[in-house]
Design a protein around this nucleic acid. Structure first.
Length: 460
RNA sequence: UCCUUCUUAGCUCAGCUGGUUAGAGCACAUGACUGUUAAUCAUGGGGUCCUUGGUUCGAGCCCAAGAGAGGGAGCCA
């Protein structure tokens, strides 16, 4: 018999019919006369209860029904006699598809997130990871829906890249050379002309530069793909492999860019509130009692927009003693960002940063000192989005490239877009897992991705 | 990478000032219970006290080094 998803049965009013469910046993309880088996199949955080009348069904047949076992249960869907659920299944046939003996690591209670990270192969079977992973799917889907509805095209930028243009930290080398005996040049250096692509290649740290190429032809594009950073970052907010969303828009100026980013974030959070209610309520009750009200408050507020210079003034006049000195021209530290978000009690969009602390491609302001960059700061998470209007003037861009000692020749294709048919355009990047942290209330980024990649950890 | 805390049963944790046989809850096994909601109650089995070395008559406890994990910081998204 074809199985029905538990989420559909729990909301069904069509009772007194034979149904089949397949899923994993969460708990079995009962007495001499009756046993109850709670089964979850991942379609929802809730379990459905199968009722076993022991007068008709020998207890011996329930031996294999242990916490974690995979079962197929056929029976009559009936109105529940007990409290706590509207329907239940009166068991007729039971098959244990996969036993789970007493060595099974997941018990009925008492697991820390740290322990679950060590058994990442089993954690999708827990309530917490079921909830997080369903929300992750919903957020991923909502990203595509949002941009599709607005007329954006999803552009697949390369994962293997031949340029280290952004200089965004350490990259993962991609090579097919024999590491024990690589081909050498006369001077002893490695001869990358013999490598697979005939040059040095790495995993991408950003799809932005290629994204711009797409936008300067398709108009509105976005990327949503894996991104890699070989930084030795050991924090609850960093991964070596993470997913990033990077929209890039022709004819969008700086303000259009901010408006889009704010609208985008609110759309995603609203989508979660409307479509992931059960899972969010679970996380709200188990991990973070403020989660739902915090999500709602972000949807309802209007983000604070202020310049870097104004932010420095706020910090200087705060009277607060910071560990790192606040000074115009230096990058803001985490404690400064936290202060600003707490001060305004809502997400903050900081704009017009000093040019020397930002990337070469950002549009220069008339003051000659700042660029049209924006960082969107969220409570605890810090920078959720970073973006800018791009420098579209060929001479100014080339001057910046030279000033910052960036390898001009490897960027010839990027520079050419400013030579032929250039136009004002803007874009931003959002770390998908950072969004997930905010939406789920989880506090470690390793718990919002199924199989995290961090320094010294690629087990699963 | 730096600072800091932690590592005791399958899991979560106690463990006194360094002293005889290292405890609890959950899980598991057995039994009880007429519909349970992480069921409850009783009984039982279960230990490389992270590793190595040191101090001591004696180390789970003190010291040193190492490994792993958490938190904070930096780099960033």
């Amino acid at each position: 018999m074809k199985n029905t998803k538990i989420i559909d049965l729990l909301s069904s009013t069509e009772v007194d019919r034979i149904v089949n469910i397949k899923g994993w046993v969460r708990t079995k309880r009962g007495n001499k006369n009756v046993a109850f088996i709670a089964v979850n199949d991942g379609s929802t955080i809730h379990t459905i209860q199968a009722v076993v009348e022991l007068a008709n069904f020998s207890e011996e047949n329930l031996k294999g029904v242990t916490t974690g076992a995979c079962v197929s249960i056929t029976g009559t869907l009936v109105k529940s006699q007990g409290q706590g659920q509207s329907v239940e299944i009166l068991l007729k046939e039971l098959e244990v598809l996969g036993a789970a003996d007493e060595t099974f690591a997941l018990q009925k209670k008492g697991h820390t997130l740290e322990f679950l990270r060590e058994i990442a192969h089993l954690r999708p079977r827990t309530n917490t990871f079921g909830a997080v992973l369903r929300i992750r799917h919903a957020m991923s889907f909502a990203v595509h829906k949002y941009f599709n509805d607005k007329g954006f095209f999803n552009l697949h930028t390369p994962i293997i890249t031949g340029s280290d243009a952004e200089g965004a930290g350490e990259m993962f080398r991609v090579t097919t050379l024999d590491l024990k005996n690589p081909p050498k040049n006369q001077d002893g250096s490695i001869d990358f002309k013999k490598d697979f692509f005939g040059k040095e290649t790495n995993l991408t740290v950003s799809g932005q530069l290629e994204g711009e190429l797409g936008a300067l032809g398709l108009g509105l594009i976005y990327t949503f793909g894996p991104t890699f950073r070989a930084e030795n970052s050991n924090t609850p907010r960093h991964l070596a492999e993470f997913w990033m969303i990077e929209p890039e828009m022709a004819f969008y100026d700086f303000n259009d860019n901010m408006d889009l980013a704010e609208d985008f974030l609110k759309y995603l959070i609203r989508y979660a509130l409307e479509n992931c209610k059960d899972d969010l309520e679970f996380l709200n009750s188990m991990y973070d009692k403020e989660l739902l009200t915090r999500l709602q408050s972000v949807v309802d507020c209007s983000f604070e927009r202020l310049t870097y210079t104004a932010a420095v003034d706020v910090l200087l006049s705060s009277g607060k003693k910071f560990e790192f000195k606040v000074e115009w021209g230096t990058d803001l530290q985490k404690e400064h960002e936290n202060y600003l978000v707490e001060h305004f009690k809502k997400p903050v969009i900081l704009i017009d940063y000093p040019k020397h602390i930002k990337a070469f491609y950002m549009k220069q302001n008339e003051d000659g000192k700042t660029v049209r960059a924006m960082d969107i700061l969220f409570p605890w998470i810090g920078e959720l989005i970073g973006g800018s209007q791009r420098e579209d003037n060929y001479d100014k861009l080339l001057a910046r490239v030279k000033e910052m000692n960036i390898h001009e020749e490897s960027l010839w294709w990027y520079l050419e877009t400013r030579k032929y048919g250039t136009c004002p355009h803007s874009g931003f990047g959002m770390g998908f897992e950072r969004l997930m942290l905010f939406v789920t209330g989880m506090t470690n980024i390793r718990d919002v991705i199924p199989f995290p990649r961090t320094p010294m950890n690629a087990e699963f």
